[in-house]
Design a protein around this nucleic acid. Sequence first.
DNA 1: GTGGTCTAGACCACG
DNA 2: GTGGTCTAGACCACA
Lengths: 130, 130, 130, 130
Amino acid sequence: MILQIDTQDALPIYAQLRDQIVLGIAGGRLEQGEALPSVRRLGADLGINFHTVSKAYTALHDEGYIVMDRRRGAVVARRTAGGADFLSKLGRNITLSAAEAVCHNMGGDEFMAFCAECYRNVNGEKGDSS
Amino acid sequence: MILQIDTQDALPIYAQLRDQIVLGIAGGRLEQGEALPSVRRLGADLGINFHTVSKAYTALHDEGYIVMDRRRGAVVARRTAGGADFLSKLGRNITLSAAEAVCHNMGGDEFMAFCAECYRNVNGEKGDSS
Amino acid sequence: MILQIDTQDALPIYAQLRDQIVLGIAGGRLEQGEALPSVRRLGADLGINFHTVSKAYTALHDEGYIVMDRRRGAVVARRTAGGADFLSKLGRNITLSAAEAVCHNMGGDEFMAFCAECYRNVNGEKGDSS
Amino acid sequence: MILQIDTQDALPIYAQLRDQIVLGIAGGRLEQGEALPSVRRLGADLGINFHTVSKAYTALHDEGYIVMDRRRGAVVARRTAGGADFLSKLGRNITLSAAEAVCHNMGGDEFMAFCAECYRNVNGEKGDSS
DNA sequence: GTGGTCTAGACCACG
DNA sequence: GTGGTCTAGACCACA
C-alpha cells in the first residue's frame, strides 16, 4: 500500500498518515493482523522523520486501529464496535458536514446520495489493489 | 443565538465559533442577511479575545458563509451551490468518517441511517422555512 | 510544589513527573483548577527538555488528571470516579504488591496496616505544605 | 501452572513472566523447593525466545524469589522477610496506587476494602496451607 | 506568552 | 531487528 503525504497541507503529516492508514484498513488494502512497516522504514520511504511516523502509529493505537506487538511492531487490530465516544465524535463530524451541505443548497436526497457514494468509495475498494 | 465555547477542547476556539455559526446558519437560527455581533461585542460576551472572533469571521468569509458589510459588519450571506473545492473537502471528510465507521463494524445501512439522523438534526431545527 | 527527578532511576523521567504530580494532586499540594507550570518553564527549572515535560503532561491528560486549557496551559482537573479500566489497572497493581508481600512473609493484618499507612501518607498531607 | 503472556501488553514479556511467577508462588501454585521449567523448555512452550525467559529468571533471582541450583535449575526459594529495599519499593507502589485512588474519589474505607479483596485474591488461591 | 509539530541524532530496552 | 526515551532547536498556530 502506497502512502502519500503533502507537506504543504494544513493537516499535520502524522494526521495525514493516520487518516490514510484508516482508509487503507477500511478499504481492505491493510488486512487484520497485517504488520505495518517499522517507523524507521516508513519514515525513510516517505522522506520524513521516524518520530512523525511514530506519532501517527501512537494515535492509531490509542484509537484502537492497530496494536503494538512487541515482536512484530505495529499490526492492524481486530475490528470492534465503536463505543459512545466514537459515535459522539462521528456524529459531530457528520452533523457539521451536513450543516455545510445545507448551507450550500444541498438537499437531503442529494446529501444522502453523496454519503452513499463516499461509503462505496471506501468499502468498494476491498479486493482492489489500486 | 447562544454560542458555547470550550477552552479545553482540542479544537481551536476560532474553529469552534466557525463551526457553531455554520450550524446556526444551516439550522435557521441565523437567517440570510442577519448581522452577526461585532467581534468586540461577541468576544466580550464569550470572555475571549476579539482577535479570536475576528479569525473565525475571516474563516467564515473566506468560505462564503458571511459577507463583510462596511456599515453592518458581518452579515450572513446568500446560499450558493458549493464549488469543486467545497465538494472535494466535503468528500474527504465524509469518506474518512465512512472509513472510520467501516473499521468499527458499522454496515452500510447503519452508516446511512446515521447520516440521515445527523442531517435531520441540522435541518430539523429550522421551523419549516426550507 | 517542588518536583524531584532522578536521571539514574530506571523509571523514565516523564513517568517520574507523572507520578509525582499525581501524588501532589492526591495530597492537596495541587488543587483542582490550579495551573501547572508551562512545559518550558518546568523543563528549565528541572534542567530537562521541555518535550519530556510535555510527554508527562500528555500522559496526565490522557488519564484525566489534568486538562489542557488553551489559555491557561495545563490545569488540574476535577476529580471523577474511576471507570472499569482504572479499577482493573489498580487491581492488577495492588494484587501484585500483595503477592510480593505474601512472598515476604507479610501476613494479612500486616499488609492491611501497611496499606492504611500508605493511604494516610497520601491523604494526610492535605493542608500541609511540606 | 499455566502462564499467559500477551505480546501486545505494554509490560515487557519478561516482566509479565516475572509477575505471574510471583503470583504463582504467593498463591501456592508454586511451592517452596519446586523446580521451574528450564528456560529453553518454558520458552518453547510459550513460543518466545529463551533469552526472555532467562531475563525473567534473573530478575526473580535478584529479588530472592528463586535460587539457581546447578543441577535442578531454577528453584522456588524459601520465604524470607523483606528488607528495607523491598519495603521501600512496596511503599512506593502502594502509595502511588493510593494517590491514584484518592484522585478518583475513592475514600479510605473503599480503598482498604479494595486492598483486602486483592489480598484475598492472592492468598485465597492457596488451598489452606497458610 | 502558550502548546503543537517536525526534524535530527543519540542511547537504551526488548526480543 | 523493533519501539521507547531524551535531548536540542526550529517553526508555527493559538490566544
